[in-house]
Design a protein around this nucleic acid. Structure first.
Lengths: 214, 214
DNA sequence: CGTTGACATCATACTCAGTAGTATGTTCCA
DNA sequence: TGGAACATACTACTGAGTATGATGTCAACG
């Protein structure tokens, strides 16, 4: 794989470093996480980390992008399909939330990245880097908007301000990264129930018309 | 006021330090905020801050408790009143969210405190302090539960797992501390609309039965 | 009524630990 | 043999916490 590395601009970031870094950032937060800590986590030293990443911020960005990629990958196949808007939105939300739970460490880092971006204060240097990440995140979020709006035009959803609605919707789907912590004896069915309840809450929040039974 | 200070165990924490600290923590986060920064914010030096607070964590805790007090104060009068459960829950949610917006800096700190608590990793010393804060926060949150459950028994709400429902509910109401940022020309009516939409989303999320018009 | 002394309230000037980043080896493989 | 992939051993700096000094205020006392 190394060979001459013909301009593989997307260098192969070692997966072990990424996952350990994700877990560190998840458990301690960006500032409280030290590079040495990450290095120990992979059974190495700073040297290895700094050989693959220019800086701590760069490592963070890599984990962030990795997490975003997981989300995009999970959602993409649904976007191409041809569902009715409400149905499509619901499926998107389910896939999203399921991925949130199954890749929690990475998604927690994405969350922190968003938080860091929304905080005003950072050095101008970090700012543009954070803006780039936030743009990617925002672009992803905007994927939901047209589907949501189409469903509203169908009379299947009901909300006043679309931007606020989208914020609340995504916030709800993402919130498990904060409060969800899998129990020991947690089954697959348990997790799926959690996904269902979260998605139901979010869809209902958008004013989803109940399917009048009988 | 100083006199002999007859066991006023609740020392008078200077309000200016608290509010400046709240804004610093809001804008930079706990780790990135330095005591010197807070001191400069109030036109003083470290000496003043450390005279009133034993440590940075202590200052943070004071801001946290202050924020919690604001919420409790806003919600208390409604708790005493005698509304139908759904109506009561809605009013509680409105008062809560309104306070979230009007005291955003403090509430952002409360949020970070919760996040810090939910992260596994901290030194045993900080842990018990954080646990104490989280307990206070949790006690407050639990105030909503019986009202919510009563409303469900009335058939006015519908959700499977109460704990998850409460999490999603509170998360929704609190989420503005993250993404809300008042515009220049924002009117009181604008803000009230935002409160309304947020509360509507949260209540609908709990499966609130629509009042069938006509 | 002036003095004194104790204490609260701060400012100044340090110490010291942790950590991001770097400079320089060392090893191993194609 | 040259370069990729690391390890080691630094540097430099930030920032929490402390020790100590300066200032004012009030209360009791002579």
């Amino acid at each position: 794989m190394p060979q001459t590395e013909i301009a593989t601009v997307i260098d192969h970031p070692p997966a072990d470093i990424l996952s350990v870094a994700a877990r560190c950032f998840e458990e301690r937060g960006y500032d409280a996480t030290s590079i040495d800590e990450v290095a120990r986590g992979v059974g190495a030293t700073k040297g290895r980390v700094y050989h693959h990443f220019r800086s701590k911020a760069d490592l963070f960005a890599a984990v962030f992008r990795s997490g975003m990629a997981m989300l995009s990958e999970a959602v993409e196949p649904i976007l191409e399909r041809d569902y009715a808007p409400v149905e499509k939105l619901r499926r998107l939300a389910s896939a999203h939330t399921r991925t949130i739970l199954s890749t929690k460490a990475f998604q927690r880092v994405v969350w922190e990245g968003v938080e860091m971006h929304l905080r005003g204060a950072t050095t101008p240097g970090q700012r543009e880097a954070l803006d780039a990440l936030a743009r990617a995140r925002n672009t992803y979020g905007e994927v939901f908007r047209p589907v949501m709006e189409a469903a509203r035009r169908d009379g299947m959803l009901d909300y006043p301000n679309p931007s606020v609605a989208l914020q609340l919707f995504l916030m709800t789907l993402n919130s498990p990264v904060i409060w969800y912590s899998p129990r020991e004896d947690e089954t697959e069915a348990d997790r799926e129930r959690l996904v269902a309840q979260t998605v139901d809450f979010a869809m209902a929040g958008l004013g989803e018309r109940k399917a009048m039974a009988a």
